[in-house]
């Protein structure tokens, strides 16, 4: 709680910087527009003009927030111009990708913890897979899934976001499943516990704190993956598509508001994960 004031200060400083940057970024275009309508601008007028341009190079913060407010609260959620509608599409693909990535990550982690061969042969490739820029794969995954006969963009987007979020889960779960120490494992051995019992009653529960830490990173990565999946591919629905369309129609305010909507969505998802984490850990008696 004691970091609230510092964080607010940093945000206020950034907003101030943004406002200051708006003037030189838009000045040339404002002067040009004024010259066209035969008006000469004083300094105060010029600054005022740069703040409310129709197609600014850098929109001012209040323009972005007005657009954000307009396209979330004022528009009907089913409207194609509503950011809630586009956010919902992106959220759906993100959650599918997240579910896919988390299951893959956990399955691989279990395999790696229990099989030495798997650890030695799969783990290095999992690391290398993350050095491949996923965006290089994105257009191809989309072509691939459409030529295999999968309609729509939901599946390829989910695959891309799963690709980005499986790795943190894998690393976290390997660490977590290995976290019980020898003493605890020995204790279960003296109970004559079977391998399955050791897994369900000791390894899995003790990996839960690690799992949640990875899930928080994973869900943010999944959202990035979905938006990347929407960006280069000519999608028409979703937050990434809004950014793309804003770019094509030369409407920067639209790009910025979609960016902020994506930021809000990311914040909400990570917060949700933290809440789940604290509730679960408290019920399991692991809260710190």
């Amino acid at each position: 709680m004691r970091s609230v004031l510092p964080v607010l200060t940093v945000i206020a400083a950034l907003l101030a910087l943004w406002y200051i940057a708006v003037v030189p970024m838009n000045a040339a275009r404002a002067v040009e527009q004024a010259a066209r309508s035969d008006v000469t601008l004083g300094t105060a007028d010029l600054i005022r003009a740069t703040m409310d341009m129709e197609r600014p190079r850098l929109p001012s913060p209040h323009q972005v927030f007005a657009e954000l407010w307009d396209s979330t609260v004022e528009k009907k959620v089913t409207s194609k111009r509503s950011l809630v509608f586009h956010g919902w599409i992106t959220l759906g693909a993100t959650l599918w990708g997240f579910a896919l990535g988390v299951s893959l990550g956990i399955a691989l982690a279990v395999g790696i913890v229990y099989s030495r061969v798997m650890e030695m042969s799969v783990m290095p490739w999992a690391v290398i897979s993350q050095t491949i820029p996923i965006v290089a794969l994105a257009p191809m995954i989309i072509v691939l899934s459409s030529s295999v006969g999968i309609e729509g963009r939901g599946v390829p987007k989910a695959i891309i976001s799963a690709y980005l979020c499986f790795f943190p889960v894998l690393v976290g779960m390997v660490k977590g499943l290995r976290s019980p120490d020898q003493m605890q494992l020995d204790l279960l051995k003296t109970y004559g516990a079977s391998g399955a019992a050791v897994f369900w009653k000791l390894r899995l529960p003790s990996s839960v704190p690690y799992l949640f830490t990875s899930l928080k990173i994973g869900i943010a990565a999944a959202l990035v993956g979905t938006i990347v999946g929407e960006l280069p591919t000519g999608a028409i629905r979703g937050l990434g598509a809004r950014i793309l369309i804003g770019d094509q129609f030369g409407n920067p305010i639209m790009i910025w508001s979609a960016l902020f909507a994506a930021a809000i969505l990311a914040g909400a998802l990570v917060t949700l994960m933290s809440l789940l984490q604290s509730v679960t850990l408290k019920r399991m008696g692991m809260a710190r």
Partner: peptide, 29 residues
């Protein structure tokens, strides 16, 4: 320390955002 305390949570939050979305803006600039 004041700025540090402010920058850490803020930076952590921004690091989780889909910054790639700024690509069209920057290409434009």
């Amino acid at each position: 320390p004041f700025l540090q305390r402010g920058l850490l949570p803020f930076g952590n939050f921004v690091a989780a955002l889909p910054i790639v979305g700024t690509a069209p803006i920057l290409v434009n600039w």
